[in-house]
């Protein structure tokens, strides 16, 4: 079983069929074309999108429906082609595809999610793409938590 070095969880064994291929990488990381998704009990429901090509490249992700229960990605014919999916019948969320959103955390600012450019995975053929949807009205910095969650308890 191959072994990978992960950014947040040390060395891990994984099976090659667990990897997702990103034929075009993602913007700013075009050379990272294979990722595994780590869903650990101690960090659930966060999912860690770990590059197989570079241990230092790991994104924190969250199923988009957990950030916005009404979330629907707008997949263009080009996105569907990159994922190896056909428009008819429409792919079913949860069984054919999974839509994740990348989380930005820092010490200085409240956590945000990028709902404008979700990561969409083809769960059957293990392919992934970052969908860039300019006109869907979503923000790249959508606040993840309601304000009352951010106020420290007094």
């Amino acid at each position: 079983m191959p072994r990978l070095v992960s950014k947040y969880f040390g060395e891990l064994d994984y099976s090659t069929e667990a990897a997702f291929q990103f034929p075009e990488g993602i913007p700013a990381f075009e050379d990272q074309t294979a990722f595994v998704f780590l869903d650990q009990p101690q960090t659930h429901p966060l999912v860690f999108m770990q590059s197989l090509g570079n241990p230092g490249v790991c994104f924190i992700a969250l199923p988009a429906l957990m950030a916005d229960p009404a979330y629907r990605p707008d997949l263009s014919p080009e996105d569907l082609a990159l994922l190896g999916l056909s428009p008819e019948p429409p792919p079913q969320a949860g069984s054919d595809i999974l839509c994740l959103t990348l989380v930005t955390v820092s010490e200085q600012a409240d956590p945000t999610v990028n709902l404008a450019s979700p990561i969409v995975l083809n769960l059957r053929d293990r392919k992934g793409v970052q969908v860039i949807q300019p006109s869907a009205g979503y923000s790249v910095r959508h606040p993840l938590l309601a304000q009352e969650d951010l106020v420290p308890c007094s």
């Binding site: 079983m1 969880f9 040390g10 060395e11 891990l12 064994d13 994984y14 099976s15 069929e17 667990a18 595994v36 998704f37 780590l38 869903d39 650990q40 659930h44 429901p45 999912v47 199923p63 429906l65 957990m66 229960p69 949860g94 069984s95 999974l98 769960l123």
Partner: peptide
């Protein structure tokens, strides 16, 4: 809501 299984094998070293 439940995250679909992403099939990463259980992990040694953690």
């Amino acid at each position: 809501y439940e995250t679909p299984k992403l099939d990463v094998r259980r992990i040694s070293g953690v």
